[in-house]
Amino acid sequence: MLHTLSLLVRNHPGVLSHVAGLFTRRGYNIESISVGVTENPELSRMTIAVGGDERVVQQIIKQCQKLVDVLSIKDLKYDESITRELAVFVVKTPTNQSRAEIIQIAGVFNARVADMSETSIMIEVTGNQRQIDSITRLLAQYGIEEMARTGIVALTFPSKRKPEDSSERE
């Protein structure tokens, strides 16, 4: 099963290597990883999607917790958190009809048309993993020329935050 781990880490040049290195060394599979600074410039938030059974994920969490740069780690529950990805597609539009259909699909997913040429269209979309997977599948029918996907960013809903979550030591 896919788990979404949210790590608060010290922000310095080596930190990504330390976290990624742990995953390589212990043979854990990263599905996606995204890193960005937080409101505190000394801290970054890493969101890592990993696959594995409960025992493996527990091991990953404990091993991450030991890293000197990791301030906190949470295994985000699907129904207690927002998870989002950004994806950008360039899709072939050989005919006006295909272009119209693609724009329609984009509408359903709240996607935005970022650019257009005579033969292709650029679509930008944010959503959870399932939504991005769906639009990818639909657009693939028309022929995706290029695509880029960010990997997940996620946070717990404030209304679902439990007291122990304040273990986010800043």
Binding site: P13, G14, G21, R25, V68
Partner: peptide, 14 residues
């Protein structure tokens, strides 16, 4: 050696 020693140490510094 910073990169090389990441998996070889408990922690390391440059």
């Amino acid at each position: 050696i910073y990169g090389i020693s990441i998996p070889a140490t408990k922690y390391n510094y440059l």
